[in-house]
Design a protein around this nucleic acid. Sequence first.
DNA 1: GATTATATAGTGTGACACACACTATAGCAA
DNA 2: TTGCTATAGTGTGTGTCACACTATATAATC
Lengths: 114, 114
Amino acid sequence: MDKDKIISDFILELRRGTLILCVLAKLQEPTYGYSLIAELANTGIAIEANTLYPLLRRLEGQGLLDSAWNTEGAKPRKYYQTTAFGQEVLSVLKTHWQATADNLNTILEGKDHD
Amino acid sequence: MDKDKIISDFILELRRGTLILCVLAKLQEPTYGYSLIAELANTGIAIEANTLYPLLRRLEGQGLLDSAWNTEGAKPRKYYQTTAFGQEVLSVLKTHWQATADNLNTILEGKDHD
DNA sequence: GATTATATAGTGTGACACACACTATAGCAA
DNA sequence: TTGCTATAGTGTGTGTCACACTATATAATC
């Protein structure tokens, strides 16, 4: 069994769910997919097109994002933006994320709750 | 579409992968499953038996844990413990987790990297 | 002494997000 | 006209986790 494979699979799992937070947070300013990929990469979050696009459509379907085509430039771009509902969900998830992170850090530091 | 359902699904996704970290970290001291559930609950991490047991067996299969039955008490208990390989993986994941957490916090705080 | 609760460990199945590989198009560079 | 890049997408499989359920043996209750 390949150690690197095991580790990279675990890292994959760790990423799960966090992408949604990134996207909801970033799309508070309207952005199109291709550019969002670059922005996230710039912040240390590598997300590929074939992961991001379905995610965007899913979040739009759930009402967390909305989208609009911009056809003014040479190539049409589809701008996505977090809706009010998306903001609301983001804020709940943010709180939850912080709590989870705190719990995990406590455990990873090996501190005991007596 | 149910808002609470959407949020709880996202929270589920956020948990993914973190359970492995908790288990690897906690099992640096040998512990049996039923007691581990209580310990984690005590630290704010609710994990149910039907989630934990398969996880333990999986991690054991991957060589991150090993186990031994203790039949001295009234009821036989299966003690799991993190192996050296498990420690190694844990340490890599820990580093990665911290990096991810930092990235996410940066994004959630809305800071820009120019 | 029969019944129920609890400690302990497990199985089987389905949902769903993500990665991988691939398609599609239109403009621009060689 | 060949190919590169910006832009957006689809189809499929893998794997983790939740939900519902099984199994057993001891301790508690009636």
